[in-house]
Computed example of a mutant assay.
Amino acid sequence: MRFMMIVKASKDSEEGTMPKEQMEQMFACMKKYNEELKKAGVLVAVGGLHPSSNGIRISFPVPGERPVVTDGPFTEVKELIAGYWFIDVKSREEAIEWAMRAPDPHGLGEGQIELRQVFE
């Protein structure tokens, strides 16, 4: 079973305002966690995303009409994604266990990971 662990964005991840020492500590924790996923053989892919200020949104407002292109930034930070892991595990429960072992993605006690199963 494949799952996407979606790291929700925060105000800091969108602004890139995390202090350097905190950023280094967070990356060290993430690197260690990623190595654990690799060693267990469950990591398919991992990545961090640029802020939405570099993003592009394509909207399909009316069937048959040309899609609308909107450049970022996008205002609803709580709806944005800052990064992800794709994992391949044996069960939903195992996916939850791995997600709960992840370090706080923002290192500030405000991180959030959404776990979604991928259609196979």
Rank of each mutant, 00 (worst) to 15 (best):
E120I: 14
P103S: 05
S53D: 09
P67K: 02
E110C: 15
L108F: 11
E36K: 14
W85Q: 12
K31L: 12
Q117S: 07
M23F: 12
E97R: 09
V69Y: 08
P51W: 01
V62H: 13
R2L: 14
G83A: 05
G111Y: 00
M26S: 14
P19N: 03
A40H: 01
V77N: 04
S53L: 08
S53T: 07
E79I: 04
M1E: 08
A28F: 06
L43W: 00
V77M: 07
S52G: 00
R2V: 12
P61C: 05
F86R: 12
V69C: 14
P103V: 08
L108Q: 15
G107N: 02
Y84L: 10
W85L: 12
M23K: 12
R92M: 15
F86H: 12
V89C: 00
A82L: 15
Q112S: 14
A102R: 00
I113Y: 10
I56W: 03
K38F: 10
F27K: 07
A82W: 02
A82C: 08
P103D: 11
D71L: 13
E24F: 13
I87E: 02
E114K: 08
G41S: 04
I113P: 13
A28G: 12
F74L: 04
E36Q: 11
L49M: 14
E114P: 07
G83L: 00
Y33L: 04
G72D: 00
V69H: 11
G64H: 05
M1H: 06
E14V: 10
S91W: 11
A99D: 05
G55D: 01
G64L: 00
P105I: 15
T17S: 09
A99Y: 09
V68I: 14
A82Y: 09
P19K: 03
H50M: 15
E110G: 15
M5T: 00
M5A: 01
I113W: 06
F74S: 09
M100A: 12
T75I: 10
A45H: 06
S13T: 02
F27Y: 14
V68H: 11
